[in-house]
Amino acid sequence: MSTSSPRPAEASGTFALGGDLPVNRLGYGAMQLTGPGVWGEPKDPDEAVRVLRRAVELGVTFIDTADSYGPFVSERLIRKALHPYNDDIVIATKGGLTRPGPDDWRPVGRPEYLRQQLELSLRHLGLQRIDLYQLHRIDPRVPLADQLGELATLQQEGKIRHIGVSEVTVDQLKQARGIAEIVSVQNLYNLANRSAEDVLEYAEAENIAFIPWFPMATGELARPGGPLDAAAQQHGASPSQLALAWLLRRSPVMLPIPGTSRATHLEENLQAATLTLTDGEFEALTDAV
């Protein structure tokens, strides 16, 4: 059974990004704070601010966003809600996707563009240095050495603390590590979709944080009478909570960042950190796909 906790995210344990930046492993992804299609202002800006403040109250120390969420809407909301930031709060943002309109995402990895976006993120977040800056997508039209090389230069200038990458293969991650020190990788991964299993295994072997986006997708597993449904009923929890508990159990480098625009849903998500799966439950869910 789960037990309600005033700061449930702390029950997820910690991971040190780059070996020197500890965060509670269950974080918060701020993409859903924007309008439909990840475009424009939220329908309820006050609730967006409440969600962010409540996340911190509940023990979240790792908040993931991107300049393209809105664009810039998510970053500005984070500043409005949380600035000046508590010492233990780590804000990760991303650059490298441009937004012509709702649900439209296009990679742009030109060095001058990445520098411009980093400077804008610093301003919108109210920071002098981004703790974790991630290349949102590799732009196939620009040499990777130019894209990550610019981030490494910005790191040397003191504007970036650590560098991460998103949606990469193992080979691309190895190539990236030859250009800059990479402390995190953010790929699509959840209980129902483990196509990035090889990337996770490599990240775990190298002690690189693995940040699964779309972490709560459960698909057919949550159908009535299915494996997630049965385990959820046994724990008095929701299938989504079980899916998050499975991720946390799956690897010590896993940093799930479930997102929501409602405080009540946030509270439910974070209680997943207090769930303890037995070996049998974990293996049954693992084998169910």
Rank of each mutant, 00 (worst) to 15 (best):
L33W: 03
T260P: 03
K159Y: 14
P22E: 02
V23D: 13
E283W: 09
G95T: 09
V142C: 08
G40A: 08
V60P: 10
V183W: 03
A152H: 13
E75V: 10
H265S: 07
G27F: 06
L120P: 00
L221F: 11
A9L: 07
N86C: 07
R262S: 05
V38M: 02
G18D: 13
L244H: 07
I160L: 08
W105D: 02
L58E: 07
R53P: 10
T3N: 06
W213D: 07
V168H: 13
F72D: 12
R54G: 11
P111T: 10
D20M: 10
E267I: 09
P6A: 11
L242Y: 02
T65S: 12
Q271C: 11
R141H: 14
V170D: 03
D44F: 12
I130P: 00
R137D: 00
A9C: 01
V23E: 10
A231M: 04
A48C: 03
D44C: 07
I182E: 01
V253K: 05
E197C: 01
A273N: 09
G96P: 01
V185C: 15
L114H: 12
D279K: 13
P224E: 14
N193E: 15
D88L: 01
L97P: 05
T264M: 03
Y69Q: 02
E167F: 09
P140W: 04
W39H: 15
R25I: 14
E57M: 07
G35V: 00
E197F: 09
D103M: 01
G164Y: 10
S238M: 00
A203N: 05
A288P: 00
M216L: 09
I91K: 00
S251A: 13
G27N: 12
